[in-house]
Simulated scan of single mutants.
Amino acid sequence: MNSKLTIALRMLLGLILLVFGANKFLNFMPMDAPSEGSFMAALITTGYMMPLIGISEIIPGLLLLINKWKGLALVWLVPISVNIVLFHIVFDISTIAPAALVAVLNIVLIYANWNKFKTLF
């Protein structure tokens, strides 16, 4: 795959993760309050899940942006991508586009770096 394309896709995925991860701490993109008793309200109420999810997005996002340990960052993102997509399929299908974009970028970048992942399979 074209190295300039993979760089652009890696940077895009890194920026998406960094922005959405940072939003869990700084709340610069306002979200509607989740309805009482919803899954999202339960996650927020725990007090630790949203920061954990935010850090789990920020760290691989930064690794992708600085081009350090790409393989680790992409493998780290697989369960995160799956959970993001499944959350939107089950709870809010209308906003699945960003979730699908993250998953597709993750898959494409894993394919582009397949030589690093052959031993996992």
Rank of each mutant, 00 (worst) to 15 (best):
L72A: 08
F121W: 13
S81F: 01
Y111I: 15
I58M: 10
T6F: 08
I16L: 15
I7E: 11
W69G: 00
V78T: 12
I44W: 12
I110N: 03
R10E: 04
F121L: 13
V19W: 05
I58T: 03
G14K: 00
V82G: 11
G21Q: 10
L64Q: 11
V85H: 04
I7P: 00
N2S: 14
N67Q: 14
V85K: 08
A99M: 04
L120N: 02
N27L: 13
L18M: 07
M29S: 11
I59Q: 05
F25A: 13
K68M: 07
F87P: 06
E57P: 08
A73M: 06
S56V: 07
V78L: 07
T46W: 07
I107H: 01
N67Y: 08
L52F: 14
L64Y: 11
V19F: 12
L15H: 05
I7T: 14
L77T: 01
L52D: 00
A33E: 14
L101Q: 05
I89E: 04
K118A: 14
N2P: 13
G14W: 09
L17C: 12
I55F: 05
L18V: 15
E36H: 04
L15C: 14
F39M: 15
I84L: 13
G71C: 00
W69D: 00
N2I: 01
G47D: 11
V78F: 05
I93T: 06
F39K: 04
L15D: 03
L77C: 08
K70N: 09
E57D: 06
A97Y: 10
I58D: 03
L120D: 03
W76I: 04
S3I: 12
F20W: 10
A22Y: 11
L15N: 02
G54Y: 02
N23S: 03
N27Q: 15
L77G: 06
H88F: 00
E57H: 03
L74G: 09
K24P: 02
V78S: 01
